[in-house]
Every structure is written in structure tokens, then in C-alpha cells.
């Protein structure tokens, strides 16, 4: 059974088919990339997966349970967490607090237990804070613990966003263009970081434009264009697929004709 199985989902905005019968499967422990030109519908797929949009048709199974059209909160509880294309941290909160927001759903106490500072509250807070600090150490942000998220350099903000997603306890992490805006060293480091996540048992589905990242770490790749899947397979197969080259470079036949002339 695949960890995530997207079956034939479609979504239109007005007359525009943003996502058109897309099928994707992600197995446990894989790093799968979703690529495609701008406006191909990649982020829309993420928004459907995380419950921001509801699908017109199709089904999504996570660990065998249907999750299509559930509200975002239930999807996080089920074990899917994400990052955003344009970083969406809680900028005026500290690094540690951002991670603690990630573990919000792992805090078992209720409002009254919080107000009366019951044992359950204290244990849960201590436990989660401890975990949050450990997580920050693992991702290399320990020195930033007390800092405010807005004060972090770009690369570290990306990392913090991933750490926050990990803190939800998710099994499947959706990364939306994690390498966007990074220089080659930074994306090199990010690449190692993502690989280390797989090493720790996480499964990753990511949208990425940086081909050096995509080709180096993906187990499999799906290619989306105008809302439709046009290719899928191992990095090497996809890279040589004429349909993919056409989608990316556009008008390949024209170019060929020009060459002939």
C-alpha cells in the first residue's frame, strides 16, 4: 500500500482546469518530486492535499484512508504537513515558539487545565518543549532558539519552516519549492538536509524548480503541465522524455525546423 495515493483528482476554477485527472503515488521512505513549468498546477495539488481547496472529483488516500476534501486541521492530524513557496513563518514569534506551534496538535491538555496549570499541562508543555529543542538541534538551529523568526537569514527560515512541519509529527512532508531563492551552496546544504530527513524515516513530496536538486535526490519524478501529468518515472527517464523537454522549452518541433533551415 502506498503511503499517499492520489487517484484521478480534478479541480477547475471557473472554466480553467487547474488540475486535470492527476494520479500520484508516494511510497513510504521515498523522495518524490513534482515538477512542471510555472502555472502547471503544482501548488494547487499541494493546496488540495492540505485541504485548502476541495476537489471536483477524484480521491486521495493517505495510509489507506480517504482524505480528500477534509479540513486542513484533520489532514495535519492524519500526518501530512507542508511548507510554503513564499515562507509563511510566524514572524513575530521566536524560533522555539514556531516549533511549539508545530506541536500544537500534540498538546493533550485543554483550556481549563492550562489556566489552572495542572500536572497534565506542565508535563505536556515540558515534554513538547524538550522535543522542540531537540528538533532544533537536529536541524542545526539550536543557536537560534531564542531568536525571532523574522530575524533569521533566508536559508534558516526555510529550515525552520521544515522543522515546524516536522514538529506536527507528520510522516509525509510536502515541500513547496524549498530551494527557491537559494544560492548553490545553500541548495547543496538543503539537499543534504532533505536526504537526512529521509534517513530519519520521513517521506517527502516536493515541488522544485532547481533541477540540480530534483535530479540528485528524487527517487521518482512527476511532471505536470497545464494541470495534466505529462510524464513520470525515474529522474533519468523524465529528463529524456521529449514531452517534458517540449513543455519546458516550448515549441521543440519549431526549433527542429529552424535547425533544418
Amino acid at each position: 500500500m502506498p503511503l499517499l495515493h492520489i487517484k484521478d483528482i480534478s479541480l477547475s476554477f471557473g472554466g480553467l482546469k487547474a488540475v486535470d485527472s492527476v494520479n500520484i503515488r508516494v511510497d513510504e521512505g521515498e523522495i518524490v518530486s513534482l515538477i512542471g513549468p510555472n502555472g502547471a498546477g503544482k501548488t494547487t495539488v499541494f493546496n488540495i492535499l492540505t485541504g485548502i481547496y476541495t476537489v471536483d472529483s477524484g480521491e486521495i488516500f493517505f495510509e489507506g484512508n480517504a482524505i480528500q476534501n477534509k479540513i486542513p486541521q484533520d489532514i495535519v492530524e492524519a500526518g501530512i504537513a507542508r511548507t510554503f513557496q513564499n515562507i509563511r513563518l510566524f514572524r513575530n514569534m521566536r524560533v522555539i515558539e514556531n516549533v511549539l506551534i508545530g506541536s500544537h496538535i500534540r498538546e493533550p491538555y485543554n483550556f481549563f487545565q492550562a489556566v489552572f496549570r495542572t500536572r497534565r499541562f506542565r508535563d505536556s508543555e515540558r515534554e513538547n518543549t524538550l522535543k522542540a529543542v531537540r528538533l532544533l538541534r537536529e536541524v542545526g538551529l539550536l543557536a537560534r532558539t531564542h531568536d525571532y523568526a523574522a530575524n533569521l537569514p533566508y536559508g534558516e527560515q526555510r529550515k525552520l519552516e521544515i522543522a515546524r512541519a516536522l514538529a506536527t509529527g507528520a510522516k509525509l512532508i510536502l515541500l513547496d519549492e524549498p530551494a527557491a531563492g537559494m544560492n548553490p551552496q545553500e541548495s547543496e546544504e538543503l539537499l543534504r538536509f532533505i536526504l537526512s530527513l529521509r534517513g530519519r524515516g520521513y517521506t517527502i513530496l516536493m515541488i522544485e524548480h532547481d533541477m540540480s536538486v530534483v535530479m540528485n535526490i528524487s527517487d521518482r519524478i512527476y511532471v505536470l503541465d497545464y494541470g495534466k501529468l505529462i510524464s513520470e518515472g525515474l529522474p533519468r527517464q523524465v529528463a529524456n522524455d521529449p514531452k517534458v523537454i517540449e513543455a519546458y522549452l516550448g515549441g521543440v518541433p519549431d526549433a527542429a525546423e529552424n535547425n533544418r533551415a
Binding site: 485548502i52 486541521q73 495535519v76 510554503f84 513563518l89 513575530n92 514569534m93 500544537h104 496538535i105 506536527t168
Partner: peptide, 13 residues
């Protein structure tokens, strides 16, 4: 307050 959508995505009701 900081980002309502991000908060939802962290499972906050």
C-alpha cells in the same frame, strides 16, 4: 494573528 493559513496548516482549529 501572524498568519492564519499557516496556523491552520499546523492543525490549529
Amino acid at each position: 494573528r501572524e498568519d492564519e493559513i499557516a496556523a491552520q496548516m499546523m492543525g490549529i482549529k
